[in-house]
Design a protein around this nucleic acid. Structure first.
Length: 205
DNA sequence: CTGTCGATCTACT
DNA sequence: GTAGATCGACAGG
């Protein structure tokens, strides 16, 4: 049930450095697939593998929150790469993004789905859902499962704090699929949604 | 100040 | 397949 070796590897791993995020947002998005998201709160560790993402480029992309300029909500997108951007959607849900590109260039990667790894019991409790494949297979589901709220907006994911990303404990070959982004009305032509092929924890086909 | 709407999810038909 | 939840962010006046 509980894999101690895996737990130790993940909890001892260092967060990905800022240089990882300081690149083209599409590359960062693709490279985040297969990485491990770690969430810590009140002595609990919750963790999952990133299996689905979307890229948002504030400069050229009408679907991005940053497209029309800086506002109180989106200002973290202009901050250092590796920062965390959390916003409320539809009044009831949160979505998690990681900032990419050099400071001053607004761009973000939306984390759309995880494969649960550590703290599954806690995630089930947070979600009130038993089905593992429905635990974190959507942007607002994973924030609920990992207790990610707007309190985390603006924190730095390159330090080992409440939320960060690490390399997977062992390398595995993954096949990546790109497709149209989901749930947007503008910029729908770009194929900036990426997910791991045949992974059952991806939100949709 | 007011009206509109959203990078979603769940429940119900 | 579709409706309802539920509210903050934002644009416009």
């Amino acid at each position: 049930m509980f894999n101690e070796s895996l737990y130790l590897k993940i909890t001892k791993a260092k967060p990905l450095p800022r240089a990882f995020y300081k690149r083209k947002v599409v590359k960062v998005a693709i490279d985040l697939l297969g990485k491990i998201l770690v969430r810590k709160y009140s002595n609990k560790i919750l963790s999952g593998k990133i299996v689905e993402v979307e890229a948002y480029n504030g400069v050229t992309d009408p679907a991005s929150h940053a497209y029309k300029g800086m506002t109180p909500r989106n200002k973290v997108m202009w901050d250092h790469p590796g920062k965390v951007y959390v916003y409320t959607i539809y009044g009831i849900h949160y979505c998690l993004n990681l900032i990419a590109e050099p400071k001053g260039i607004p761009a973000a990667v939306l984390i759309r789905a995880l494969q649960p790894i550590i703290g599954i019991e806690e995630m089930i409790k947070n979600r009130g859902v038993n089905d593992l494949t429905k635990l974190t297979n959507g942007p607002a589901k994973l924030t609920q499962a990992l207790k990610i709220t707007k309190e985390l907006n603006g924190i730095d994911a390159t330090v080992k704090d409440a939320l960060y990303v690490v390399n997977p404990p062992s390398k595995e070959n993954i096949e990546i699929v790109s497709s149209k982004r989901i749930g947007i009305t503008k910029g729908t032509n770009k194929l900036w949604r990426f997910y791991i092929k045949n992974n059952p924890f991806v939100s949709k086909k």
